[in-house]
Simulated scan of single mutants.
Amino acid sequence: MIEYITPERIANSIMQDGTFSGHYLIVEGNKDYKFYNKFVTKEISIEEAWGCEKVKSVIHILKERNYERAIGIIDSDFSVILEEPIDCDGIFVTDFHDIEVMMLKSTALYNILDLYCSKEKIVEFFKDKDALDILMELGIEIGLLKLANKIYNLGLVFKPERPEGNQLKYKEFVSEKDLTFLGKSSMIQTVVNYSRNRTGRVGSIADINEKLNLLAPERYDPAHLVNGHDLTNILFILIKKVLKSTNKMLHDYNSVEDSLILTYDNNEFIKTDLFYKLYLWSRERGVNLFKSELTEQGKVGSCLSVAN
């Protein structure tokens, strides 16, 4: 059970492994493993810590023990919006809220729409609308609720205790007919119902509404406000229910996220600040971090950045 995998246990396992002479990359979970494993060499062993704070703890424990062959990558989450710098040496952070948002803000989004949906359905639905803009507008709504929950401790829960648990019912506040937002009240009620009996105290509807109204959307960068898992759940509704995809590979939001990982390519990754910082770190230390094709492209990008 992942809840019993402590940072100490992970750190001990790393330090006791005398058969591996490379570097360790500590990530939050399985999707992160799949994503970063596309880009790193065999000299890098990726370990899942199952959570942002656990990644930080593993790196901190290893640093305290003078173990220098490990780095971590965590999601930015709300750190930019809340002006909470990640004060931990050896930790790198995603450009946007999480890796899903990074992927959705790339050609991968349009590639999977083409993969799962007919051209006719895509043209009919989007017309003069942009897929990313639609997703972001809907993601902002629940993103603000999550931010309010974090700031004001409203006692809300947005995900199951275990990965296999029941997910939040997005269809109760995002229409399966045309992907319209069914209203703030529907969203709040859905999340309150989902949260009951799972935390010590869930705020009242009135209190949640009040706190949510205090947060103005225009104050925040949407790419740091929206949560990628919300967007992929909404994207699943779009593909499966609105655009009527019959592709047998499409089961749930996990299928969407796996498809994004598969279609997100080197050319997109080397554009990110995350890649550039990791590339500089690896070059300065002589660590063979990235596969050769990325390294060669990274050298070009590095030269261009210096020239500019």
Rank of each mutant, 00 (worst) to 15 (best):
L104T: 08
V192D: 04
G155L: 09
G286R: 09
L231F: 12
D258H: 06
N254G: 09
K146F: 08
S13A: 14
R65K: 15
L147H: 05
S185N: 02
H251K: 07
Y276A: 15
T107V: 12
K184I: 00
L280C: 10
V191G: 02
D252K: 04
F92W: 04
I239K: 01
K105E: 12
G90R: 08
V226C: 15
D87T: 03
M1R: 06
D265P: 00
H251L: 11
P85E: 03
G165K: 05
R219F: 12
A49T: 12
Y36P: 11
Y36E: 06
G143Y: 05
M136L: 15
S175H: 02
C117W: 11
V101R: 01
L304H: 07
G183Q: 03
E164V: 09
T107S: 14
D87F: 00
I44E: 12
L62S: 11
D221F: 11
L25C: 08
D114W: 00
N213Y: 09
K277S: 15
S118I: 01
S282M: 10
H224A: 00
K240P: 06
N37E: 05
R69M: 05
V27M: 03
Y110D: 14
T94W: 07
N247D: 15
F35M: 14
P222W: 12
L156T: 08
E257M: 14
I71H: 05
D133N: 14
E137S: 15
D17W: 05
I14S: 13
E53V: 05
